[in-house]
Each structure stands twice: as structure tokens, then as C-alpha cells.
Design a protein around this nucleic acid. Sequence first.
RNA 1: GCCUUAUUAA
Length: 236
Amino acid sequence: VVSWNAMIANLAQNGAHFEAIRLVIDMQHSGEVPNSKTFTNVLPACARVASLKKGKEIHALSIRDGSYLDLFVSNALIDMYAKCGRLDIAGRVFKESEKDQVSYNTLIMGYSQSSCCKESLHLFLEMSFVGIPHDVVSFMGVLSACANFSALKQGKEIHCLSIRKLFDTHIFVANSLLDFYTKSGRIDTARKIFDRIPNKDVASWNAMILGCGMQGELETAIDLFDLMEGEGVDYD
RNA sequence: GCCUUAUUAA
């Protein structure tokens, strides 16, 4: 089993999703029994190719051997259903399972890309209410949700909270803040944050440039682009 | 010896 699992993990991590899924079938044909690690290895592959059918089969197998009770498995199931666009099922698995920080983050991320962005905000508040601390991923998810349903007020509150928790200097959170403020039309605020990021990465530049572009500040966008070239950033 | 969530347009 271990070597099958290792092969499946490698394929899934290298983007060979269909091959990874294929290998789970092959392993069963050769008489091996997939276990909880097999499931957590293959579920992200199902998620990325949005294969709800295969994902459900894995879900069924995990119920049969009881491994759906494993946090790694239930979290991977939540992610798989969310990425397949079935937030209803993701939410159901979430509700029925044990929950940790990753469970909350996974569902926050899932909802932030959906039409129920507000749900991300609920979960973000709920997790700290039940005593699970926020981390970088929680902040990225909830900020992305606020950006997508233009919740300027709530997003600002999250920004304040991130400052208090010292998350605002983390590059990923800072980039999420840029995305949030540019999408909310606050180029000035975004620019202030941008200028204070000491270690800007390509995503920081892209968020800022595209943000200016979307708000019609084309001059600024072009200036920024020249600046970026000057800094020797590997842009795309 | 293998395991889940992670930022920038479409």
C-alpha cells in the first residue's frame, strides 16, 4: 500500500491527475486495499479536475472503511466537493465531521470563490468563536470573499484585525489586501499598502497593476510596470 | 518510507 500511495501522491503533485485516479483503480485490481492515505492523496486530484464522480466513489470507499472520520480525509472531501462546485455537499460533510483549522479554512476558501461569499465571513467569525485561531489562509480566504462581494466595511474590519494579529505584513495577506482594496475601488489605500511591502513578489505587482488598470488609472499602471521592470521582477 | 486548505485579470 505504501508504495502505491507514494506513487499516487507523486502523480497528483505533478499534475498527473487522471493518472493518479487511474492508479487507485489499478491498485484495487491488483488486490491492494486503499486506505485513508490513499484517499487524501487522490482527492486533491479529483478536486483539480473537478471529477465529482470519482470523488464520490472515494467518499463511498472512505465510509465503508471508516476513514471518513479521519480529519485529513474529511478535509480533503470538503475541498473536493467545494472545488467541484458542490458547496452544499461540502457544507454537509463539514457539519457532520470533526473540525479543525484546515476544515474551516477549506470551506472559507470554497465559499470565497462561490456566489455565497458571505458564508466565508460567517465561518471566519465562527471559527474564532469556537476557539480555533485564524491563520494566514483564513485571512486570505475571507479577504478574497470580501473582494468578490464588495464588502468594503467588513473587509476593512478584517484588515484591522490582521494588523492586530500581525498578519498584515505577511506577503500573502498583504497581497490579498491589495486585491481587496483595488477591487473595492480604493486605489489610494492599496497603493499605501503596496509601498510598505518590503519584499514585493510578482503577485503584489500584478495585483497592483491590474487593479489600477481595472479602475481606469492607466498612467499609473504603466508607470508601475516600468518600475517593476526596473526592479528585475520575473513578470508574466 | 505515503497524507488535507493557500495570494494576482479572464
